[in-house]
Design a protein around this nucleic acid. Structure first.
Lengths: 203, 203
DNA sequence: GTCTATAAGGTGATAGAC
DNA sequence: GTCTATCACCTTATAGAC
């Protein structure tokens, strides 16, 4: 109780920093703009977080965790394989669609900063074991066509994320810049993408 | 013939600028570093291209054109639908794999710069008409399951590009940072991804 | 904890000699 | 065409008052 507005201010800074970093990236973000968004002074940023680098580190870790752990949660469940795919695709498209800029932000920073941010997913250790096991069993049982489990997982995630991060290209090229048509496509995918995958693998 | 090294220097600058911009993005790129890479002086950059902004504009347009027009070339051909998919997937994965940082660069810049770069694909006008027509015909003829042509196109492209741009995450998470395993997966995809798609749609 | 003022260094761009 | 030297501005970070 010693610091009244401490926790609140610290939180406001973090939220402002997320918006700024996600939108502009580490190199394009400005400490002044973060301060403006948080409604406080620039010097306070350095009081709570020592430097731009430190602040970015906190933001990146938090942002990455916000979209990565969802894998484990659903993939580890004991649902039937096909239902698990349906479930995951629907949930994950919704999640990514609600924060569509995060994946490109993460990929861009990992690209520009090879190595430096690697620890960010060291501690995540996403667990695909149960899903891989299910896929192997389904292959051996003849329920689905032979496929390398990792390949199928990559296909599933690709079909969820890419249509959302590629919106700036898809919308003008395929939908004449009509946002409604684009959003309808995304809605449709929440069920159709899973059926596409299931058709692709079932024997 | 008035300017001896003109064309050569201008070209060296452009190539150096591509490397720098693709790696660091517009905000992170440094004119000094571009000059270093080109083996010339910083002032020369401004002699040939007026400003960082102009130089970036030239680079972005050229980079975007390098990966976008491939769509039309293959998609417009008169191959059978299934063979066209096989053909495109193989060619496009090879192309993207050879310059894996371009898609994230393009998406990041389009994200940070909503509107400003829109003209870049105004003049491209990728032509999906023939492919869409083929898909519609295959649906009506009962050769493939009902699907919206745009949805199938998005699926195809997603399965080609995402596994490559997500390498910084896929390699540590799925392959324990082993590049060989990752590269084998990409090689496998050149044929397997097309079969995955064809299985998904064929009746 | 929060502010104003300012230091210290980097960056895009130009002037002018060769 | 190509270089060196330099300007003007912007950005991170800190000092110090309240």
């Amino acid at each position: 109780m010693v610091e009244k507005k401490n926790s609140s201010t610290e939180q406001k800074i973090l939220e402002a920093a997320m918006l700024e970093f996600i939108e502009k990236g580490m190199a394009g973000a400005r400490m002044q703009e973060i301060a403006n968004r948080a409604g406080i002074n620039k010097a306070l940023l350095h009081y709570y977080y020592r430097s731009k680098d430190k602040l970015f580190g906190v933001v990146f870790r938090q942002v990455f965790h916000a979209i990565a752990p969802k894998f484990s949660t659903i993939f580890q469940s004991e649902e039937d394989l096909f239902d698990k795919i349906r479930h995951f695709v629907s949930e994950y498209i919704s999640l990514i669609h609600s924060t569509p800029h995060i994946p490109v932000f993460v990929l861009h920073e990992l690209s520009s900063n090879p190595g430096r941010l690697s620890e960010s997913f060291m501690d995540i250790s996403i667990n695909f074991d149960r899903l891989k096991q299910q896929i192997d069993e389904a292959v051996e049982g003849g329920r689905i066509k032979p496929i390398v489990p990792e390949d199928l997982i990559i296909n599933i995630i690709s079909l969820c994320i890419f249509p959302i991060i590629a919106r700036p290209i898809i919308m003008p090229v395929l939908y004449e810049d009509n946002p409604d048509q684009y959003n309808q496509m995304i809605e449709r995918r929440k069920t159709q993408a899973a059926e596409f995958i299931i058709n692709a693998i079932k024997s």
